[in-house]
Design a protein around this nucleic acid. Structure first.
Lengths: 198, 198, 198, 198
DNA sequence: CATGAATGAGGCTTCATTCAT
DNA sequence: CATGAATGAAGCCTCATTCAT
């Protein structure tokens, strides 16, 4: 299965306890099938956990989703940092983000972004989930800006603006490749990124 | 209510018949609340229609969504064309797309793209809806490329590449402004667009 | 298709008018799929008739079923009489009834008796349909008794008793072959009939 | 109420739990009103159970029917064995089956056979119910044959043939008495049985 | 004689959650 | 820490029938 699937990424050696089994099961179901498409019963079946045991650890389905997103953030940022580590310059790291996207999204058959996917069709009151999305996207944004700020080529202001622009290319590439089930949007985004950072 | 809300855009004068009442009610609910958050009962209540009347016109909830997306496409492209009409050059029209985004998305309180929102959390077998999203995005893509091809500044190849890059900026701006509930992503996207088309 | 399927048996040459088209369509659907499994919409679709046209000819679904049963009675008794016509003696005619059952039931893949099938799962108030079943079974009963009364071998009383016994063998053979989807019950019934009429 | 009505036959003393309450309510409704005439809502109302509780115990309405038929089989065979127990010979036991039919069918006002009634008007895909009918009828058939094999009067072959013939008389008597709402078919069947076993 | 839109009642099933054990 | 029974609300959909045209 996809290396981007298992939450096990976070603790690959230990036998998982109940809470982590729930999170892992829910993570794969939420990401690959969707939050609304995933029922509580599916989660406990997949996790081999009793229903009330689950509600002992999580107040609601939304809370499980929050745990899923927290874990996914750690995993996703970890993989990203790993991926760009072998690039020499900050600018090269930023550009190689798009290679990361290709690897990731092809691997998950263009299932798109876990945060984008979950916030688009949610009850009005599921604010905790929406907050997670804001949090995650802000961290990615800052991560990009921080890298570009290390490039003497750009002023602080330029670095921030460029970071935002790259961020938007990333978001657009993810959602468009998901709709089209094709990697061309990621390639186009990389090309645009190269022009902007020139 | 938002000028982008009512399907009535398409036939603003006539008293709506049952089918159109259903589409209008469903359109607003699907767009503003989400496809999964909207029940058949809500739709028929809002449209003041009996349940079986609804199923006389639409085989399933998915089919209503398809009608919604078809109508929304006409509305959205119409508004876009109207908006950019007062620009002199093709390039200016493309750039003013981002002003269109600002007007639209602020008006709907950053509710995002109807097609992006509906395809991210859907049963596997809802292919008709997914096809509508592909269709819509392809039309926007072609629309952008066709405009840029009219600019003698660019070769055919350049126009196509630039069109794709602008497309990605648009998609990224929409989804990111939706998550952040803020227009900065649209402004950043416009800035990036200006650089790319320079 | 099965020669026992089409109601057309009754008027094989003429182009069918609306009423007859409805009866024919309903007949095949009621018999082969079941009364409860058959919807009004299926009937009008199969008959290529508008819904209100149908309600012009029949007050209710039950009334269509009555027309179906009346037609089926004529058809079924007609085929039976045709089948036994080449037998010389009355007793031989009665015995050959079971050959008729084999031909008929194999042809319709052991779909069983139209009257038995329709009266077993019906709203309490569908008395008109139940009456049709009583009528039909009484006619078959009388038909058998009348044949046996022609045999000088039996007294009137004996003929009536034997007729009832044969009737029961026929009913049992039909329903049991339907459950088992096999012709052995018909063969066993014929064997028993031979013993009783000996 | 009829002693043949309540599933309580199986556990007459204990206070019934939810699952058994469902089976009992459904059993009476399915048998006396028919499978198609009985809605889930009626069952849960009669059983005083919440809808979702019901679906915790049974995957579908068909599954409830299977449980009904399994329970009915135990009840029906039990009552039959009880009834014929006081007969001395195997032959007498077989013959007294028809007295059992009279007692039973008069008691239930000629409502007929639960298995015959349920398989005649069923969706194509309800195979589990149809299988139950085959199972039940096979057990009755074997039960008759086994009894007759104990009679030294008959060879094995004769016993099997006679068993089948009696089986058909039983089936015919049940369905015909149901249509006619009268016990004469059972009496005729008994008379025929006496002749065949002579 | 034909049409198809409109209906109210009800069909079966699933949801996330809580409770007693 | 685990269990699974029980729940109310809601899910999507189909029924036979009537109405205005």
């Amino acid at each position: 299965m996809s290396v981007y699937a298992f939450f096990t990424y976070l603790c690959p050696m230990k036998k998982l306890n109940v809470k982590d089994r729930i999170i892992e099961a829910a993570s794969n179901l939420f990401y690959f099938n969707g939050y609304n498409q995933t029922g509580i019963n599916q989660i406990i079946a997949e996790a081999s956990v009793a229903k009330a045991s689950m509600y002992q650890h999580f107040r609601s389905k939304e809370d499980i989703a929050v745990a899923y997103l927290v874990g996914r953030h750690t995993m996703w940022m970890g993989k990203l940092n790993e991926f760009v580590a072998n690039q020499d310059t900050s600018k090269a790291k930023v550009i190689s983000c798009f290679d990361y996207l290709v690897e990731w999204l092809c691997d998950v058959e263009f299932r798109g972004c876990g945060w984008q996917n979950i916030i688009t069709d949610l009850p009005q009151d599921h604010t905790k989930i929406k907050d997670q999305a804001i949090l995650h996207k802000n961290e990615v944004r800052t991560w990009l800006q921080d890298l570009l700020k290390k490039e003497s080529q750009y002023s602080i202001e330029q670095a921030e603006e460029l970071g935002d622009e790259v961020m938007i290319l990333i978001e657009g590439a993810i959602i468009l490749s998901q709709i089209q089930k094709n990697e061309w949007p990621i390639n186009s985004a990389k090309r645009a990124c190269l022009k902007l950072l020139a």
